[in-house]
Design a protein around this nucleic acid. Structure first.
Lengths: 207, 207
DNA sequence: GCATAATGTCAACACATGTTCACTTTGCCA
DNA sequence: TGGCAAAGTGAACATGTGTTGACATTATGC
């Protein structure tokens, strides 16, 4: 039983991860981070890095893991929340954006490294998102009309929704952090996009 | 009139740009490229780089420009092409994917640096895409039913379409280059997504 | 409280990076 | 054809990089 110790080591490990996240959120891509600057910003000597991670890539993978975890947590909480009868879409979008604001660093990391320069990170994030799409698809399959849809059609529509939300995420992250007007407009546009999609559902005939 | 010479210089300038594009397509993010490796892969000495670009960032901006230009070229050609009466959506998607395959390097660059680590490149690409969305919106405003839509609604739906196409682009670029089956499936999914969107159009009531 | 493993430090390495300056070569235009 | 600007070269620089090994300092479980 390798009971993980939770001494100061655990905290500087976290500090390293946070430092990396902050650097990424500041604009740099993970690919271009330097081990030395990272340790410096944490206040330890470069060589101490290896006490916590085997390599930079390992750090990156840990960050992918952590970030995807907050994504899953969001979905779980959303599932446990009772579904509001009115304004389902609008309130979902709003909730999402709040969650996004509360976890900017993780979302920023995911967005940047999703197409970033490190193949293994890309792969990990890609898989995570695909899983996310799948879960969304099966969730949607429980709704009144959609319960007659094929699995493929459900994935198709889930993918479309995720694409819309991804675009919104991009816009939010690139807007100034406290611009309420911009945020409101993005929420508005995304809400209308999702409403449009829902409007199409009853019309759909699988070919 | 500063008539640009087209000597060997012009060609190694292009060679530098191509080398950078290849490196990016290979996986590295632009801000992790090294000036030295670049010049080495072109066969010139590092210092000669400055004969063609003031800095790496200048190279990047030139690449943004070039890549966005192929995007605009695509749209222009699409506009000049007569609209097929049947299977409009499917044939559009197919055409797009072919164009994408024929210009993988440029699309790869756009996709990677759209969220990449260099702010100015991000900004440039973002603006380019927004312009793209606007043009698509006004184009769509010429269609039978959509000609009654507000500009805001048109932008909304155009954004949704672009989001779907962007997702498809990502999938295509990350699939092996000659996997016809995967390509066919992506085309299929995207086509259905766009069809779904079109189905919603007659139902839409602007609030 | 002591032994022990985990964290952290220090010095040093071999190498890669961007950029400088003065120089040579190339190719075009008058 | 001679001149001149453009393109390419070479040596050298100051810095930054990842990684090594041997050593010091913690903290924690027994």
């Amino acid at each position: 039983m390798t009971a993980r110790r939770a001494g100061r080591g655990e905290t500087t490990r976290k500090a390293l991860m946070d430092a990396a996240l902050r650097q990424v959120a500041r604009g740099r891509s993970f690919d271009a981070l330097s081990l030395r600057k990272l340790t410096q910003s944490v206040g330890i000597v470069p060589t101490a890095f290896y006490r916590h991670f085997e390599s930079m890539e390992a750090l990156g993978l840990a960050l992918v893991d952590e970030s995807l975890r907050t994504l899953r947590r969001m979905m779980r909480e959303a599932r446990e929340q009772p579904v509001p009868h009115e304004q389902v879409i609008r309130s979902s979008v709003t909730t999402y954006v709040h969650y996004l604001q509360a976890n900017r660093l993780h979302f920023h990391f995911i967005m940047r490294e999703r197409f970033g320069g490190v193949a293994t990170l890309r792969q990990g994030i890609h898989n995570g998102i695909q899983l996310f799409v799948s879960e969304l698809a099966t969730d949607m399959g429980r709704f009144p009309v959609l319960d007659r849809w094929s699995a493929g059609d459900l994935r198709m529509i889930a993918g479309l929704i995720v694409a819309a939300v991804t675009e919104a995420t991009d816009l939010i992250l690139n807007a100034p952090e406290d611009d309420a007007d911009a945020e409101a407009e993005i929420i508005n546009t995304t809400t209308r996009q999702l409403r449009l999609i829902v409007l199409a559902v009853p019309q759909w005939r699988s070919s």
